[in-house]
C-alpha cells in the first residue's frame, strides 16, 4: 500500500465526472422522469374522468332507449288504430258503393222492363189487330177503331 500521485489523479477524475453528471446527466433524466410522472398522473385522471363520463352516458343511453321504445310502441299503436280506421272507412265506402251500383242496376232493370212491356203492349195490339183483320178478312180502319185499339192496348 504505497500512496502516490494516482490519488490526486483519481481526485481530479472524480471531480470531473461528478460535475459532468451534475451538469449534463442528472437534471435531464430527473426532469424526463418527473415529466413522465405528471403525464401518467394526468393520463390516469383523464381515464378516470372518461370512466365517469362513460357510466353517465350509459345511464343516459338506457333512459333514451326506454323513451324511444315507448315512443315506438306509441307510434305502432297509433298506426294500428289508423289502419283500423282506414279499413273501416274503406268497408263503409265499399258498402255504399255497392248499394249505389245495386240501385242503378235495379233502376235500369225497371226501365228495361217498362220499355219491354210498352213494346210488348204495342206488339200485342198490332198482333190483335192483325188477328182481327184475319178474322174479318178485311181492312180495319185504324182511324175508325183507333179508340177501341187504344182502349185494348191500355188494358193489356
Amino acid at each position: 500500500m504505497n500512496f502516490n500521485a494516482t490519488l490526486i489523479g483519481q481526485l481530479i477524475a472524480f471531480t470531473v465526472f461528478v460535475v459532468f453528471c451534475m451538469k449534463f446527466i442528472w437534471p435531464f433524466i430527473i426532469k424526463a422522469m418527473e415529466d413522465r410522472e405528471t403525464r401518467i398522473a394526468d393520463g390516469l385522471a383523464a381515464a378516470e374522468k372518461g370512466q365517469v363520463a362513460l357510466s353517465e352516458a350509459e345511464v343516459k343511453k338506457a333512459e333514451m332507449l326506454e323513451e324511444s321504445k315507448q315512443q315506438a310502441a306509441e307510434i305502432i299503436s297509433q298506426g294500428q288504430k289508423r289502419h283500423d280506421e282506414i279499413v273501416e272507412s274503406a268497408k263503409d265506402d265499399a258498402r255504399s258503393e255497392k248499394e249505389k251500383i245495386l240501385a242503378a242496376a235495379q233502376a235500369e232493370i225497371e226501365q228495361q222492363r217498362t220499355q219491354t212491356r210498352e213494346q210488348l203492349r204495342s206488339d200485342v195490339a198490332n198482333l190483335a189487330l192483325v188477328a182481327a183483320e184475319q178474322i174479318l178478312m178485311r181492312e180495319v180502319d185504324r182511324n175508325a177503331h183507333n179508340d177501341v185499339l187504344t182502349k185494348v192496348s191500355a188494358e193489356l
Binding site: 500512496f3 490519488l7 483519481q10 481526485l11
Partner: peptide, 9 residues
C-alpha cells in the same frame, strides 16, 4: 489510491 482519491473528494 483510487478509493482514497474518492473518499478525500
Amino acid at each position: 489510491n483510487i478509493t482514497f482519491g474518492m473518499s478525500i473528494g
